[in-house]
Nucleic acid binder design. Structure first.
Length: 293
DNA sequence: ACCTCGACCTGGGCGC
DNA sequence: TGCGCCCAGGTCGAGG
């Protein structure tokens, strides 16, 4: 589900609620998504903890709540929502153009694995249908924390996104370019949707080997990656089925995607029918006219 | 170092 | 209505 724009939308939508708030009680309903510590230690460590900051690197949410740091990866279907029992709940709203239904404040159901409760009755709920998401609570002085953070590479929406390191990483590799930009060390936060979008914008076929790509073509891709991510963010993320922000709102970027999910439909640029192949074990949609080998 | 495959999970959509 | 199959925003480990 969530790639950088979705995770960042979740982060931003949580900001009005979290900083300064103190956890009264943490509840682990199903421990599958909790990697460490044990549920007992998790609950004990979080009782009385105060949210300080909420950061993000790539697809990783970083909750600073001393003495610990909570790392959350949403996997494919993870949802973090803020529940306020005092707020009027709207069971659904119809999107004016698409008719898409949007649900606010998801219920505590069998897919809700973790809840963090505050003294005023509000709560942070974690729901994850497929249970691919992961929660890790690590003390700040634990060296494991740096190991976990080091697994995430350069985030394309930061000033660390520089052309030379990107160029080196790509041209050093014989892998398909799509596999390279899906590599979280190379471009942290890019997933299947935005990889296809960026490759289309740059006019590069997904299966082209990294070392075959010229400097000018990679310059285009280097620019396209943050562009498509920014666009996704502008529309509040891409919601095909599960993605919602902290208020339960879906994004609308699915309406402006250029290629992802448009297999068999005409390319917006040349009207050629879009193709679908498997690259890097992921379904890839692309245009044989607009994207060159 | 890289590829492919299967695993981890649940649910929705489709064809029969 | 129901069953079986395929698909899905992600990652990880095994084996070649």
């Amino acid at each position: 589900m969530p790639e950088l724009p979705e995770v960042e939308s979740v982060r931003r939508s949580l900001l009005p609620y979290l900083p300064g708030r103190v956890i009264e009680e943490a509840v682990v309903h199903h421990s599958k998504v909790l990697i460490f510590p044990t549920p007992q230690e998790f609950v004990e460590c979080l009782r009385g903890a105060r949210f300080e900051r909420l950061e993000r690197r790539g697809k990783l949410l970083i909750f600073q709540l001393p003495p610990g740091v909570l790392l959350v990866h949403l996997g494919m279907t993870g949802q973090i929502t803020f529940r306020d029992p005092g707020r009027a709940d709207t069971p659904f709203e119809r999107h004016p153009h698409t008719g898409l239904e949007r649900t606010l404040q998801h219920p505590l159901d069998q897919h809700t694995h973790i809840s963090l409760h505050f003294s005023d009755g509000c709560a942070l709920l974690y729901r994850d249908i497929r249970k691919f998401g992961k929660w890790r609570l690590i003390r700040r002085d634990n060296p494991r924390l740096q190991n976990e953070l080091a697994r995430v590479g350069t985030d394309p929406l930061t000033e660390d996104w520089q052309f030379e390191p990107f160029f080196q990483a790509v041209t050093r590799s014989d892998r398909a370019i799509k596999a390279i930009i899906l590599d979280q060390q190379v471009s942290a936060g890019v997933g299947n949707i935005y990889a296809d979008e960026a490759l289309f914008v740059a006019g590069i076929r997904p299966e082209v080997r990294g070392k075959k790509l010229s400097r000018p073509r990679l310059k285009k891709l280097f620019k396209a990656i943050p562009e498509v991510l920014q666009k996704g963010l502008k529309y509040g993320g891409t919601s095909f089925s599960d993605y919602v922000d902290a208020d339960g709102k879906k994004g609308t970027n699915q309406e402006s995607l250029l290629v992802y999910g448009r297999y068999g439909q005409p390319c917006y640029q040349c009207r050629q029918t879009l193709l679908r192949t498997t690259v890097a074990q992921r379904t890839s949609t692309w245009c044989k006219v607009c994207q060159k080998a």
